[in-house]
Design a binder for these strands. Structure first.
Lengths: 220, 220
DNA sequence: GTCTATAAGGAGATAGAC
DNA sequence: GTCTATCTCCTTATAGAC
């Protein structure tokens, strides 16, 4: 294989590992499977990384970063707050149905961090990241829809993550998309009940502007 | 080791495997680890089971059955429906905090079924079981609390499972018990809003009786 | 029925030629 | 820097003595 810097090689290996994990799962992501996917020799792996665990740490940091970015780039405001929430949740469900292996892989990676000694901190970081990303989306959504949350937005975010995680797990098991949709209906109603319209007559008139879109993938 | 019937040996191996999976995870539950836990020789394993996968199938059927039973045996009615729901959810959270490895193991087993070819049906069965167990609890709870659900009870059950799964995952990652409690507060409010009091003047007077307790573990 | 010993293969990691 | 060949360990599964 041609020469490349250690950094290049690490990045190519990580991207190969992401594909293997997404397709076949964490357990199948052996060093051999990863180098085969990347078209490298086995020795190159250990030239770039000291160990498989070191690579896994980097891989997890990489995907968490990627997902947090994805969460921010898609909130389509659809009139009232209830529709906005419901559409955002639906967009996540669509994503899940379209690429189930990806969501399953994210759960498996979390399990890996929870089971691997010395990596619990990474698991905590992973959810801290999700929750703060979704919090930002929730706050942007409130401004755009002209509402105010009656509970802290970080709690709203946690509820959204709770619902998407729960729906994901059940759907992965039973593939009942209609039932998942009914749960999202319920969640959207319940969350919208925590919003109150901003009294926008108290100031001039211009409704609070700000982001044009954010939401959709919710997280992960 | 002393002689025992094949059935006995299978059951002892499964119980040993449950302990290993609960303590160290699915990946650590090798045939060697299991027979060591059970105090048997490696050959005994393959005398009782044709393969490790066959044992895993039996193990999963065993724990699913166990959990479904557990769900039914604890609903403490605490006055109104909102408190009943909240207390049931809290009991589940207490269980999670007390024995996190157990809940993590249940998720890992579901992943195992989702990833193992020819076992997807088991995953479906697993959730069908949970949902129907919780449905029965939800219906019993309605009768005891004298309310009626405004949506099918199987949907109520699915929402409860969604919330407990989602809360479990986030808690396993960040161990934020207070935040988990706030999500459960919200869930209890939202679910209680789907109940309407039964007009118990329409019949004689005796409120619908029935079970003395069911709930608490919710599922799993 | 139950054991010890071993087969057969896959894993992570490394040595050493180029 | 990159490769092939190999080391060592651990896995599931089986053969064959008792």
């Amino acid at each position: 294989m041609k020469r490349m810097s250690s950094a290049e090689r690490r990045s190519e290996l990580i991207r190969a590992a992401v594909r293997v994990v997404g397709r076949d799962g964490v357990a199948a992501a052996t060093t051999r499977a990863i180098v085969a996917e990347a078209g490298m020799s086995l020795a190159s792996f250990h030239y770039a990384f000291q160990s498989r665990d070191e690579m896994m740490r980097d891989l997890i940091a990489y995907v968490v970063e990627e997902e947090s970015n994805a969460a921010m780039q898609s909130l389509v405001v659809s009139g009232d707050i209830r529709s906005t929430i419901r559409d955002g949740l639906q967009a996540y469900l669509d994503l899940l149905v379209q690429e189930p292996a990806h969501e399953l892989a994210m759960f498996e990676l979390l399990h890996y961090t929870l089971r691997t000694p010395g990596m619990q901190d990474l698991a905590q970081q992973q959810y801290l990241n999700y929750h703060s990303s979704v919090t930002r989306v929730v706050e942007a959504g409130a401004r755009t829809a002209g509402i105010e949350w009656t509970v802290p937005s970080v709690d709203i975010a946690r509820m959204i993550v709770t619902v998407t995680d729960g729906v994901t797990f059940a759907w992965l098991a039973d593939r009942d998309t209609d039932a998942a949709g009914r749960v999202l209906d319920f969640a959207a109603d319940a969350l919208a009940a925590l919003a109150i319209p901003l009294n926008d007559t108290s100031f001039s008139s211009a409704p609070p502007v700000l982001p044009a879109n954010a939401f959709k993938e919710t997280h992960r």
